[in-house]
Write a protein that binds this DNA or RNA. Structure first.
Lengths: 195, 195
DNA sequence: GTCTATACGTAGATAGAC
DNA sequence: GTCTATCTACGTATAGAC
């Protein structure tokens, strides 16, 4: 029988975050109650407040962590090589990183409007920093004379939207393997910038 | 003084739909209450139920109408010409149509998970029909030998995701005019399919 | 067709026992 | 650190007066 009293976790904090992540991605932040999250974890609703000041902060900290990890992992991946190599690495990075984090991506793109104004500003700044990574690569390619990109800002958004769209249909047990997906999208990206 | 009693509208129905559209797009279906919608319209919450059986049906009918209009307008626009012409027309149609309907698009893409299973199935079928229009154009271009598209299904999704992403940044008072945006995206699309 | 009033459930969050 | 109990507010939806 499960205990109904007392501390049963050094790991309740992470389990709350995992449950919130899953439920927010599945039903949306506004549609998920603190009681649902508590039930998923196996505690009472009041216990959640030992780990988060409120529901809003739970959402924000999930998004913040995701963006921080995204930016850090990305920077490592695209710092070396010529513009074409860096663009290829960016595309492959974006796809690979996002495939393993479907829930995080979904929340990051769908729940922006449920952030408080201050929290929105923080996340938006990080999102722009990520866009800037790609824009810098496109601009570098222009300088090198290897890309044909009339408007790097718009092209940046177009490429990221195209790549992120993968999350709406990709399934691990689907017909295409991750390398196949990466290859297909790299070829589209490559051609669209004139390489 | 505004009347507080009696019928003040042959047009309350459309106003309710307009208010719901705006509020759902702004805050999300789950975060918007019937009371908020009523306040926006200037009636009491109970009065809404003269026009919709429930909140779910309000969401569904907005999405259904949008998809019906999308499919009808699209069909007219891409039926004639060679594959390249039809692709160009599709891209321009998608961009132009979506620019004037930011709220509808937002809801159509964000609120799928808040539909009941039956309603979801209906909308999903319409969404696939729209994808099929583009996929048929890509396949026609392959047959004509003018497109280089290894995987028409994936390319279809990639192009639609790229085009739809415009709605996240385009503003009527921004730096780019609709024709400029259309031109930029047409060139990316064109190159990505090898034309 | 809209109002007021309300039924009934659940929301986020807190207090105090253990 | 978790529980139970609870506060207060608000949710959807309905009933019946006008």
């Amino acid at each position: 029988m499960a205990r109904t009293q007392g501390s049963h976790s050094e790991i309740t904090g992470p389990r709350i975050r995992a449950a919130a992540l899953k439920l927010f991605a599945e039903h949306g932040y506004a549609a998920v109650s603190m009681r649902q999250i508590a039930r998923e974890v196996g505690v009472q609703a009041g216990a959640l407040y030992n780990y988060t000041p409120d529901k809003q902060d739970l959402l924000f900290s999930l998004m913040k962590q995701h963006m921080d990890e995204l930016l850090e992992a990305c920077a490592d991946r695209v710092k070396d090589g010529d513009a074409t190599t860096r663009l290829h690495n960016f595309v492959d990075f974006h796809i690979t990183f996002h495939m393993g984090r479907a829930d995080e991506i979904f929340i990051a793109y769908m729940e922006l409007r449920n952030l408080s104004p201050e929290n929105f500003h923080t996340i938006e700044t990080l999102r722009r920093a990520y866009e800037d990574v790609l824009e810098a690569i496109l601009t570098a390619g222009l300088v090198e004379g290897v890309f044909d990109v009339p408007n790097p800002k718009v092209t940046t958004r177009a490429i990221i939207a195209m790549l992120t769209g993968i999350t709406t249909w990709y399934r691990p047990d689907g017909a295409l393997s991750p390398p196949e997906v990466s290859d297909l999208y790299w070829n589209m990206t490559r051609k669209s910038v004139g390489v």
